[in-house]
């Protein structure tokens, strides 16, 4: 697919990284402030969608990115299952047990496994939404 005009490309070059960084902030501070894995993951997916829409790409490269993001999504959900199983095996026999030390509420490193779950869910949501978008783009390109 072809990209957009120079104006859009320049603005995207300026704000694309900022949007991605904001998504990372929302994901990692999900247990302290509003946000979390779902909201931050959609913002990260939005940053990548903005880049693809503004700059465009050739279809072979888009296909390869689609495979990679689909694999990333599978890896993320597999890691969630592994963490749940680790919580089951350690200590009390409860699935999704919070096995890490809780720490004091309000610190960045606290709340046990909740920040890790936030990051994994963020990766999963971002990869899923980006894969959906790429599937539509590749469908549109292949038809021509």
């Amino acid at each position: 697919m072809t990209g957009m005009t120079n104006i859009v490309k320049t603005v995207t070059r300026i704000i694309g990284g900022v949007v991605f960084l904001f998504g990372l902030y929302i994901v990692t501070h999900g247990h302290l402030s509003p946000g979390g894995g779902f909201a931050g993951g959609t913002i990260i997916a939005g940053a990548f969608i903005l880049l693809v829409l503004a700059y465009g790409d050739n279809i072979m490269h888009l296909r390869r990115i689609k495979e990679e993001s689909s694999a990333l999504e599978n890896i993320a959900i597999f890691c969630i299952l592994i963490m749940a199983a680790v919580g089951f095996l350690l200590g009390t026999k409860v699935f999704f047990n919070n096995f890490l030390p809780i720490g004091t509420a309000g610190q960045l490193i606290s709340a046990g496994i909740i920040p890790l779950f936030n990051i994994l869910i963020g990766i999963e949501v971002a990869a899923a939404l980006f894969t959906i978008f790429l599937a539509f783009v590749i469908f549109k390109e292949e038809e021509k």
Binding site: G30, H31, S33, A111, F117
Partner: peptide
């Protein structure tokens, strides 16, 4: 849970 954001605590 140790999470200041109660929504994240409930969710995860």
């Amino acid at each position: 849970t140790g999470s200041a954001n109660l929504v994240a605590g409930v969710l995860f």
